[in-house]
Amino acid sequence: MSSITCPYCFARLARERIGFRCAGSSGRGPGCAPRLDERLAAYTGSAASASLPPYFDPPPAVRRLGRGTPRRAACPECGQDTARRVCPECHNPLPGAYCETPGKIVALVGAKNSGKSTYIAVLLHELSHRIGAELGTALVACDDRTIERYKRDFHRPLFGDRRLLPATASAVTTPRDPLVYLLTRTRRRRLRQQDMSLTLVLFDTAGEDLRSRDVTDLHLRYLAAADAIIFLVDPLELKSGGGDPDGEPINIIARVTELLHVGRDLPHGRRLPVPAAVALTKIDALPLDGALQRNRTATAALDLNDREAVHEQVRALLYDWQAGELDRYLSHEYAEYGLFGVSALGGVPREGAVGTGGIRPYRVEDPLLWLLHQFGMLDGVR
């Protein structure tokens, strides 16, 4: 792995460029005192959280030889060893696990009111509990900010207070950190075990941030760096066929696709090698039959027959709703795409709160399981 992508500013970094931050002083021993890190303050928009021991570049020998970054380095000012690795562009900490594993950035995009925040909250909860146990995976937050943000903005209001989550605020007015998790899994291959891991980066993009092609630089870099993408679509918006054209699913998907093409500088007409999962949310509000009426069979593999049946049923729904252009566009632009139906809550909410039946997720894991299969972390069976 010769380079990585910073999960905060999404800059592509040669491994030998990864910097360090002094461990600082514990109060008695040697170590550098905190000082304002202007680059970090510019990223966070606040100087309050950017007073830290100093950043320093990797040792010159590492940069000269180009053999990747060491796990530790001595601070050139105080001489103390440190293992705190840092992005040289934005000066955010790079979790050690992120530097050592094949990071996969999964972009999550949807129009306003498509249920992005609720989907993230429930998906991560399921990965930590039911789905984690089923697949034999472990999901661990890579930094303290991810732990705090998930508890504050997602878990506590939805699972603790049973309140619906508000619409995602625009990153232009409310800067926020991505959620960065290490997902590990032991895969049994014939007579041996293979430990596999990837870093899951979720950055919940607000619908209004993608209403025009004049998106912020951060969103541009985020989408250009994505290894896979999950589009969330409100089926009621598709069925109505009306509303604001800027917020229509086909237009938002087209804008994101354009950014993905620009970020990869692909020849005209070549399909994107980025797997795209398009999920209809809130399907509990629709009369359903066939594959979408059945729960996914619990197994530590992807049921390819079920996957194909759901894909074809959602595809048929799109054409029934006169939205077949969405399927045609995806088949033209993406080498691999999948259609899904999910429900994060599993029931209709009541006056801003979770319904009386509680949170009963339905197939929320399907898009991610398909992506894990695309990444080679999950077998497919028929």
Rank of each mutant, 00 (worst) to 15 (best):
L139A: 07
P178D: 03
R190L: 15
Y181F: 12
R149V: 15
M196A: 12
P175F: 09
R163C: 13
L158C: 01
A141K: 09
A171Y: 11
R187F: 01
A167T: 14
D143I: 09
E148G: 00
Y181N: 07
H155T: 09
V172P: 00
I147H: 03
S170Y: 00
L165E: 07
R185G: 07
C142Y: 06
T186P: 02
R162H: 12
L183I: 00
F159I: 03
K151Q: 13
L165H: 06
Q194T: 12
R152F: 10
Y150H: 01
R189E: 14
F154M: 00
D161I: 08
A138L: 10
T168D: 08
I147R: 12
D195N: 07
A141T: 07
R190H: 11
T174A: 10
L182C: 07
Q193Y: 13
F159P: 01
T146H: 04
T184W: 00
M196Q: 15
Q194M: 05
T186L: 03
K151G: 10
A169Q: 14
P157V: 11
V172G: 04
R189G: 10
Q194E: 14
D144M: 09
P157E: 02
T199A: 11
Q193R: 12
A138R: 13
P175K: 03
D177S: 13
T137C: 15
L164E: 02
D144C: 02
A169S: 13
R187G: 05
A167R: 12
T137N: 07
R149F: 11
L183Y: 06
L191M: 11
T137A: 10
R192F: 14
